[in-house]
Simulated assay, not measured.
Amino acid sequence: MKKIAILRGINVGGKRKILMADLKALFEKTGLENIKTYIQSGNIIFNSNSNNFELEKILENSIRERFGFNVPVIVRNSDELQNSITHNPFYNKNADINKLHLTFLKEKPSKEYLDEIQSFNYEPDNFKIDGQNVFLFIDGKYHKTKLSNTFFEKKLKVGATTRNWKTVLKLIELSKD
């Protein structure tokens, strides 16, 4: 089955640098097949029949052993990623996709934290949580919004990483091959 690994915080601002060729070689060494990388921020498409949770642990451990630092990894299968298109409340034919982002959550947050986070309002920026996805509408620049990875990690008590909607669409396209 096609899987997509989304890594958090590599190759940003010259820190935690990993060449995509080295990352691809590491994934091959762990037994994964048909590996493709997409841009330097850590998006890897591959085939595996292992479950997502197992893959996340294997890949995080392998990266730590090989590169010497911790990199959170979130894995989705191609169907889960494809479903994000139909579940995104901000995405339609008239949407400005430059304002759309998807925050991937490592696990489904507890009801308590989901209820609490609904009280936050940072309009015109907006968010909608659906399972392990946070759909974002960011009116300005993403790096200036309060709806960051750190915000969701602190409020929901789960790991998170975000991709812009263009990257999400490209990952869906690449996972169909």
Rank of each mutant, 00 (worst) to 15 (best):
F69M: 07
K36S: 11
A21H: 10
I35S: 03
E60V: 04
K141H: 12
G140M: 04
E153S: 11
A95E: 10
Q40E: 06
N52Y: 08
G31K: 05
I117K: 02
H143I: 13
R76G: 00
E65A: 12
L136G: 01
Q132L: 11
S41N: 07
T150I: 12
S41H: 05
Y113A: 13
I117H: 01
N92G: 07
E54P: 03
F151R: 02
F151D: 01
E112C: 04
G131P: 03
G42T: 02
N51Y: 12
H101Y: 15
N126K: 15
I117W: 01
F135G: 00
H101I: 02
R66Q: 14
E54F: 13
I58G: 04
V134S: 01
K141W: 07
P89W: 02
L59F: 01
D96W: 04
P89E: 09
D115K: 15
N133M: 09
H101W: 09
N126V: 11
E112H: 12
G42N: 00
A21W: 07
F127K: 04
H143T: 13
N133R: 08
E80C: 05
S78D: 10
Q132Y: 11
N47L: 11
H143K: 13
S62P: 03
K24P: 05
V73S: 01
S119M: 12
I97N: 08
S41F: 02
T86D: 14
K57R: 15
Q40A: 11
Y122P: 05
F137Y: 15
Q132A: 13
F135D: 02
I97T: 14
Q118D: 10
T37S: 10
H87D: 15
Y38G: 03
Q40G: 05
Y142W: 07
F151V: 02
T86L: 12
L81Y: 03
Y113H: 15
N98T: 13
F46P: 00
S50D: 15
Y142F: 09
F137N: 03
N70W: 14
L55G: 00
S41K: 04
I44D: 00
Y142T: 02
F27N: 00
R66D: 07
F67W: 06
P89V: 04
Y142A: 04
H87M: 13
L59A: 01
S41G: 07
P109I: 01
K106S: 15
T37R: 07
N149G: 02
K111G: 09
Y91H: 08
N98S: 15
L59T: 01
P72G: 14
S110W: 08
T145D: 00
P124Q: 08
Q40C: 06
